[in-house]
């Protein structure tokens, strides 16, 4: 005699609860089209990817609460109850988040003033910067070259220059202050 799908699912779930991974994989594979069908029936307006998200959410819920399935009871009412609850939960979450969101159109301009509408910083005079770096004391010059131009980490630079990280930070700070002053003077 052929088994009804419900009995088959119940048997697979019983085996899955006992730790049979193969039976569990078969069960999840067999109930996935059913879940998708239920989701499509209840949420006709959803896009295909949203339906798949919901199917995965339900599979995850089934996995989490699989201990609540009583092997003596039919399987499908248990599954349908989870599906319905996840629909309702999703709708509640959507309603809650929608209530706290304000949709704003993308604005092309923030303020009329030009500096507020720049999309990138202007580069200064590169040669001028190179000259300024060359005039720095050796330790500060190396700190700038390794950390700012070479993009080395503090640890790598400290090892390369045989300095402590603290000393390197101080040298970088002093170098940056000196460079700012030099470049401001020259402008």
């Amino acid at each position: 005699m052929r088994q009804s799908p419900d009995n088959c699912f119940a048997e697979l779930m019983r085996a899955a609860q006992a730790g049979d991974a193969l039976a569990y994989a078969r069960l999840l594979e067999q109930i996935t089209p059913r879940i998708r069908q239920i989701v499509r029936g209840q949420r006709r307006f959803l896009r295909a990817e949203d339906i798949e998200d919901l199917v995965q959410d339900i599979l995850l819920s089934v996995h989490t609460v699989r201990a609540t399935y009583d092997p003596q009871r039919p399987f499908m009412p248990w599954l349908v109850a989870i599906c319905r609850n996840r629909f309702a939960d999703g709708a509640r979450r959507y309603a809650r988040s929608a209530a706290h969101e304000i949709h704003v159109e993308n604005m092309a301009v923030t303020f009329v003033a030009n500096p507020a509408n720049n999309t990138m910083d202007n580069y200064g005079d590169v040669d001028e910067l190179k000259e300024a770096i060359a005039t720095l004391p050796a330790m500060q010059r190396d700190a700038i070259r390794m950390l700012k131009l070479g993009e080395m980490s503090l640890k790598e630079a400290a090892v390369a220059r045989n300095m402590t990280i603290g000393a390197l930070k101080v040298a970088t700070h002093r170098a940056m202050t000196a460079l700012r002053k030099m470049l401001a003077k020259e402008r």
Binding site: A16, G19, A21, T32, E52, Q56, L60, R66, D70
Partner: peptide, 22 residues
């Protein structure tokens, strides 16, 4: 079945320890 869902089922199956029904 989409690849993502198949992958999810595989991952869920790999992590399916035995559970005692409530």
């Amino acid at each position: 079945m989409t690849t993502d869902t198949k992958q999810l089922i595989r991952q869920l199956t790999e992590n399916a320890d035995p559970v005692r029904p409530l």
